[in-house]
Design a protein around this nucleic acid. Structure first.
Length: 956
RNA sequence: GCCGAAGUGGCGGAAUUGGUAGACGCGCUGGAUUCAAAAUCCAGUUCUCGCAAGGGAGUGUGGGUUCGAUUCCCACCUUCGGUACCA
């Protein structure tokens, strides 16, 4: 009997598809479009592991399915090729990032091809390619040359803003900005060019300002907030400190409201939307001005609880607040200076790791409650952050937990302002209860009180209602080599200008020194012939972060070769936006937020027809690995490392042992509860890690050292039990499973179907090769449906399919179609198994059934489907076929078997004709022997019959 | 702490609108085929009582709604993910 030979068949069809350019797609207005996108990978040196392809396979199945349904499908892939790891690798090895990037991409490409992912590679993009980053730079120049007008609620050219300043100053301009002062037309006209440039800078959507940045000394660069974990750099776990630097920023906050609102109209998971909402962190409240006793300056605070103003017993400024130096009194100067020193000495990590500890110092100054003129002492404390709100708060110990702790520690008064006797379970920050001790709002419920105070604040000109967002403008500067250079030059007055399109791309100059300079400037600063222009101007030396290139790559796929635009109007009008986007949840905030921001910006400029880039988004789960550890005693035995069996670990205190990860190839029964090392496994481990070559390995029955066993018990085989843990697949845990190995053994079709069969796309699960045999068997069984026992292709082309065969086929069509549409690929695989198991009852398959089944399965197992399709006599590819049409008539049955329950518990079954009436069924059901037995001696209260579903008899 | 998701056999998981809980696969048990093995095929497999027929229990825990709850409501527990002095 001829068995399915995946090696030769898969290779044959991959070559055929390549030659036929079957995956290339062009705009075709006669067909509806569908855009399926994967998050493009960062090509790391490690290659793909079995976890990466999960999303790629799912999106590929969906793409192939949509093609069979007559859609013109755009399904591209590219590489997010700028970034820190490649540069770190270059620093360590001297290999130029461009060289290692090329090599890594080549490897990724091979692995992806092996998975038979139907990407149109003629559309590949790489963010590090000058032809690509020309347009990344161009979008940056557009951000630089626009500001956000709040009246128009969109981005407007800076030239229009200059004209308004010329005519009327900035008094009436409603715009997103960071400029502190107001000026009229004459003030504007009397400014120097440099002063004007500085004002304009504060309005640009891409702007420069001094900011406190996360500086990582060891990496020599600024890090974004999401590159920091627990106060240490995500990469390398180096300490991070705050440092003031002039940096480029993108004014994403201008789009905060639209980024929030847009979430209402896209089909993303609630979990993801909530994450974005939390990140945006919208809050409604009021900003209120407090006079300062004996000072001209006013103190502006932001609060979400203006109703609690009569309970404000002290004010707190952030230590960096500019007023601190002005208002501190002579006798408090010492305290304040001491506290500021303390704050400076604390790293980001200290601040985060001990939030319970309350600290602060008194300035000696007093603010005046704007309603009552009561004097309120002004303190400074770490817990108030300079870059949120106004960097200052009114502290209400009775209404805020942190304020309460602070008041207790420094013995400040606490005034109860809300009577919550009607709400015994409410917390002190809940917006329920009735105001007390609160002047004109006494007796009002909290929500009314908030409104009343807001109104009074505005009426009396003490401040205004205000909406705040937690999200900050993003730092867009990196002091690195391997990124897009900023298309910006400075003149001798340090006025920044963007390069015109004609001068783009500004290519990254070649260099072989990737270390940042001692002052923390980018390595580009060393390339003086590049930095210094002949006319005396100089270039920006920072580069853009990795998020730049990934914020718009999905648009470039529409028209990747275009040299005159990031994509032509006609291709954008055709492809519109992404219909389905699949990728990991690790990009839930930064990448997806930035892409949405850039998309909305380009929409404002009229380049895009829609204002959201990704209509449907799915986060695929992670495929985890099992990490195997062995226990090492911290204390050496007779100068030797001493490992012990897991079964002995409970005899020791936790502090006495360390867990050492072991590469999984040495472990027997890998992934099971009782995985262990044999003496061969130990030998392998020692060879791999020679520092343990003389180590002692102890099990309850004996020891193993330097190749010799001392077994005291009667155990036949030496088994050192390991400790298993599920975790991320990672090089450092030595638990990476390479898809190439699995594919080599089982074939791509099997691998694809097995990854889908593992479970729902969105849930994380550990990789387990054990189950793959089931899918492998299924594929061979599928193959055998088409061959007789002599291995000859055998299909009945004459006999029409029976009713039963048609029912099997059409129920499979129905289920597969429905399940693909709801991205439930694991259940599709089950349905295929059921179909093949059912059809096996027929010795020879009928043509009609055989053909439809091949098409149905082709998105999942493209190679075997293509082979069978050609064996069936087709010249063209199965991937150009049509999805079989569902005919519900074949699913209709003349009889339905009903479960019959008594009091909700199923007791028996009974078959009824589909057109039996309820009355007939009820009468028949009551006559059933099994029913009689259960209702004997009881009264029938009710009989419930749901047609097509079930029968329930209620009796007692 | 807050927000989100999820808890179903020995294991991965299924049950789409409240309607036969455990599809499909792994594993396991027994059998057929074979000189033997691989491969393949057949039967069984939630737990529990019982030789069987047939009972009882059962979807994290406790309650509720309903003729009927894995599904809806309330409270709690656990796990995972995100986030954190955000005023």
């Amino acid at each position: 009997m001829q068995n399915y030979d995946h090696q030769s068949i898969e290779a044959k069809w991959r070559a055929y598809w390549k030659e036929q350019k079957i995956n290339e797609v062009v705009e075709d207005t006669t067909k509806p479009k569908f855009y399926v996108l994967d998050m493009f990978p960062y090509p790391s040196g490690a290659g793909l592991h079995v976890g990466h392809p999960l999303g790629y396979i799912a999106s590929d199945i969906f793409s192939r399915y949509k093609r069979l349904r007559g859609f013109n499908v755009l399904h591209p892939m590219g590489f997010d090729a700028f970034g820190l790891p490649t540069e770190q690798y270059a620093i360590q090895t001297g290999i130029h990032p461009a060289v290692s990037t090329d090599k890594n991409i080549k490897r990724y490409r091979e692995q992806m091809d092996q998975l038979a992912l139907s990407y149109d590679w003629s559309r590949e993009v790489r963010t590090c390619d000058p032809k690509y980053y020309k347009w990344t730079q161009w979008i940056f120049t557009q951000l630089f040359d626009h500001y956000y007008d709040l009246d128009e609620d969109k981005a407007i050219p800076i030239t229009a803003l200059k004209e308004r300043f010329e005519k009327e100053g900035n008094l009436k301009v409603q715009a997103a900005h960071t400029h502190a002062n107001s000026f009229d037309a004459s003030a504007w006209q009397s400014m120097t060019a440099k002063e004007q440039a500085e004002v304009i800078m504060d309005y640009r959507l891409a702007y420069r300002k001094i900011g406190y940045v996360n500086w990582c000394e060891a990496l020599g660069t600024v890090l974004a907030n999401d590159q920091i974990k627990d106060g240490l750099s995500e990469r390398g776990a180096h300490p991070v400190e705050k440092r003031a630097m002039t940096q480029w920023y993108l004014r994403i906050t201008a789009y905060a409201e639209r980024l929030l609102e847009g979430l209402e109209h896209i089909d993303w998971s609630d979990a993801l939307k909530t994450m974005q909402r939390n990140w945006l962190g919208r809050s409604e409240g009021a900003s209120i001005h407090f006079d300062i006793k004996d000072h001209n300056a006013q103190l502006e605070i932001y609060t979400t609880r203006p109703d609690t103003i009569f309970g404000a017993t002290f004010m707190v400024l952030a230590p960096e607040h500019p007023l601190v130096s002005q208002i501190t009194t002579g006798d408090q100067q010492g305290d304040i200076d001491e506290y500021l020193d303390y704050v400076k000495s604390r790293s980001e990590r200290d601040r985060q790791s001990d939030v319970k500890n309350v600290t602060g110092a008194f300035t000696g100054a007093y603010a005046l409650n704007p309603f009552t003129q009561v004097e309120i002492p002004i303190w400074i404390a770490e817990y108030v952050l300079m870059d949120y709100g106004t960097g200052a708060i009114m502290a209400v110990p009775a209404g805020d937990e942190r304020d309460h702790k602070f008041a207790e520690k420094f013995d400040l008064p606490i005034i109860e302002i809300i009577d919550r006797t009607d709400y015994p379970n409410a917390g002190i920050e809940d917006k329920v209860g009735t105001m007390i001790n609160s002047d004109f709002i006494n007796g009002k419920p909290v929500l009314e009180a908030i409104a009343a105070v807001c109104q009074a604040v505005e009426d009396k000109n003490m401040g205004k209602r205000q909406v705040n967002f937690k999200m900050r403008d993003a730092n867009f500067s990196r002091q690195r080599y391997w990124g897009e250079p900023f298309p910006i030059v400075y003149d001798d007055e340090d006025i920044a200008t963007a390069l015109p399109l004609a001068e783009l791309p500004l290519t990254l100059p070649d260099s072989d020194d990737f270390q940042p300079t001692a002052e923390g400037a980018s390595p580009l600063a060393r390339v003086t012939e590049w930095v210094e222009l002949p006319d005396g101007r100089r270039r920006e030396t920072d580069t853009m972060p990795a998020v730049a290139g990934s914020s718009w790559y999905y648009l470039r796929y529409m028209d990747p070769g275009n040299e005159d635009a990031f994509a032509s109007k006609s291709t954008i009008d055709y492809w519109q936006d992404v219909d389905l986007y699949i990728g990991g949840a690790e990009h839930a905030v930064s990448h997806l937020m930035y892409a949405r921001f850039w998309h909305k910006f380009l929409y404002d400029l009229g380049y895009l027809p829609t204002d959201e880039p990704f209509q449907k988004l799915i986060n695929q789960g992670m495929i985890q690995g099992v990490i195997e550890f062995i226990y090492l005693k911290k204390e050496k035995t007779e100068g030797q490392h001493h490992f012990i069996c897991r079964s002995m670990a409970s005899d020791f205190d936790e502090e006495e042992l360390v867990r050492i990860p072991v590469p999984i190839e040495y472990v027997s029964a890998y992934g099971t509860d009782d995985s262990y090392l044999t003496t061969e496994g130990i030998d392998g481990f020692i060879k791999w890690s020679p520092s343990y070559k003389d180590a002692i390995f102890e099990i309850p029955d004996g020891t193993y050292q330097k190749g010799a066993t001392t077994v005291t018990g009667n155990q036949k085989e030496f088994q050192l039990i390991t400790h298993s843990e599920v975790g991320k697949m990672s090089k450092s845990k030595y638990n990476v499973i390479n898809p190439d190995d699995v594919i080599g053994q089982y074939g791509t079709d099997c691998f694809r179907m097995y990854e889908m069969f593992l479970g729902p796309l969105e849930s994380s699960k550990p990789w387990d090769t054990n189950g793959i045999d089931g899918v492998f068997k299924f594929i061979r069984r599928l193959w055998r449906l088409y061959f007789d026992e002599n291995g000859t292709f055998a299909i009945d082309r004459i006999t029409p399919a029976s009713k039963d065969e048609l029912r099997i086929l059409h129920s499979t069509i129905k289920k597969v179609q429905e399940d693909i549409e709801r991205y439930s690929f694991n259940t599709c695989v089950s349905h295929f198994m059921i179909a093949v198991n059912d059809l096996k009852a027929y010795e020879v398959q009928k043509l009609e059934i055989a053909e439809a089944l091949v098409v149905l399965i082709s998105p999942f197992a493209p190679h075997i489907a293509e082979e069978l399709w050609h064996q069936l006599g087709h010249e063209d590819s199965v991937h150009r076929a049509q999805f079989p049409e569902l005919n519900e008539d074949h699913l209709k049955q003349s009889e339905i078997t009903y479960p019959v329950s008594i009091n909700g518990k199923k007791r028996t079954e009974a078959a009824f004709s589909v057109d039996a009436t309820k009355e007939e069924m009820e009468a028949e059901a009551l006559k059933l022997e099994a029913v009689q037995k259960w209702i004997d001696g009881k009264t029938i209260r009710k009989v419930i019959i749901v047609p097509g579903r079930m029968i329930n008899i209620v009796a007692n």
